[in-house]
Structures are given as structure tokens and as C-alpha cells.
Amino acid sequence: MSEDNRKKCGCGAGSDEGCKSNQDGFFNAPISRRDFLKRSAVIGSGAAALIAAMSPLRLLKESITAEEFVQKHYKEMTKEEMDRVIERISNKVKDKYGVNPNLRDVKPMDGVEYVYALNLSRCNGSRRCVHACVNENNQSRSPEIQYISVFKMPKGTMDMEQGTRHYDPKEVPEDDSYYLPVQCLQCENPPCVKACPVEATWQEKDGITVIDYNWCIGCRYCEAACPYWARRFNFAEPDIPKDRINPDMGYLSNRPRQKGVVEKCHFCLHRTREGKLPACLEACPTGARIFGNILDPKSEVSYVLKNKRVFVLKEEAGTLPRFFYFFDK
């Protein structure tokens, strides 16, 4: 064997014999019984380890179908495709929860931009809105997902860090506190939308920021980008009791979500885009919540914005929320 050949096969220091066997290749080489056993052991155990590591994929079969996997983005779907998707999701809901859902894709209304106003002088921290929301929007009960956080705040400060969500006195309101419910503020300049790498969340023309739960990859960037801690992540498969499922569903709002996607308040768009008031407002025992169309000068929210002293949370963040707070007294 010449010097050149030795360099080519990369075993300059080795014997002629060793070099030859490498040239013959791994599989073609004459192989001893001992080597065969060693290689089989490595390949066999390696394959077993791979299969064991991949075994959670078996569960995917239950949660995702091929049709679902190739589903297009919400904005790219045609009417027929959307109808098929809605039929598929309806069947899935029926199988899982035993109710026939009224699932539909509710489009925004023309000439409508939603604004919410909340009267902090009236809010008594009774958390009725939180549970009305959970009940309306098919949120997971265990692990618990709630869109609205009611903060108990000491009087005389707007510093959110001094508030707590964990209060449980015998009766509310307590004299030394006021209560600040926070949910998605439907910003006009939403940081969450900018953070999403796959455009699974966007702002609709009526001002509601929505999520395509089938497009979300669960990276949680939006959750980190939101200055108001308004987004929630499904760490586990959502658990909704069959008797608590709300069959009135919208594609972009309260249809059951799956594990690994982000969700948030959407101003009950399956209700509000059909003219109804959001569920949190209807449940508020003190009437602190006011909802309506800001483009209508005669609406309740227009009256609030013209006549009350309103403010928004974290104005300095530049998010331009559509959710206004005001004090009445």
C-alpha cells in the first residue's frame, strides 16, 4: 500500500490490515460473531431507547388527526373549508362532552369597535365575573384557568405590586381596600400580537385580539409580552365537566382548547358580535361593568368616556387599551 492510500483512508499509523477493512465498509466487512453481537446489542438497545422516548407520541393519535394537522390558518381558509373544520370540531366536542354544540365562526360587525369600562367605585371584589367567565368560556377547571384576576388593592395606591389575588374574607368589600379586576384589555397596539412568531394571534377590525387555537404553537412569547398578565397557557389537557360545558361556541372564542395552546379573554365575541353583553358584565352584582360600541356616540361607553374621569392601566407601556377604569365619586 502506497503512502497516498494510507492518507486517503485516514489510518496512517495503523497496520495495512486495519486500513483495508475500513475501506471495505461497515456492513460489507467480514465480521466475527463477537462483533456481530456487539453491534446488534447497540442497534437493538438504541432502537428500544428511541421507541421509549417517542412513546408519548402514541397519545397524539387521540388528540390530533391528519386533517387537523394540515388545517390552514384561519385567515386563509375558504368558507367551505371552515364549514368542514367546524363540522369536525363539533363532532369532536359531541364525542367528548356529549352535547351538540352550536359552533360557528362569528365575524366582526361593521362600524363597531368594542370598549369596556369598569367602575372601580362600584366593584366590590365578589369575583362573580371570574366564575361567570369560566362558565361561559369553557375554561379548564383542573388545572384552573381564569381570564379575570381580581386584585385587592390597598386604598391610596395604583401600584399593582401591592395588590393580591388571594383574598378570602367573610365579606367584601373590606374598608381598607378597593378591587381591581384585570383581564385582556384588547389593546389597540398589542405587544402580544407582535411577539407571536407564527401569526396565530391578531387584532380583528372590531378591536378584539383573537387566537387561532389550531395555529398556536404554544411558545408562550405572547404571554411574556403582555404587560397585564392577561394570557393563559394550557399546561395540561383542559378538564371541563360534561354538565358545565357551554354549547354556545365561537371558533375564535370559547370552543374547547387543547393542551399546549394559549388562550385569553376575547370580550365573549360569540355573544358580543351578536349584540349581547359579555358574561362577566351580566354576572356583576353591582353593575360596575359597562360595555358597548365606542363608535356609537349614544352608547353607554361613549357617555362614560365623555363624562367620567377614566384611566387605563400602565398607560406608559403605550399599548392603548380599550378597557377603561374610572372612579365615580
Binding site: S126, H166, Y167, E171, P285
Partner: peptide
């Protein structure tokens, strides 16, 4: 307006 018992908070 009467004080009321608050609904359960976050678990």
C-alpha cells in the same frame, strides 16, 4: 349595597 361573601379565589 350589602356586603357579600366573595366567590372562591384562585386555587
Amino acid at each position: 349595597f350589602k356586603p357579600m361573601k366573595p366567590a372562591p379565589g384562585p386555587n
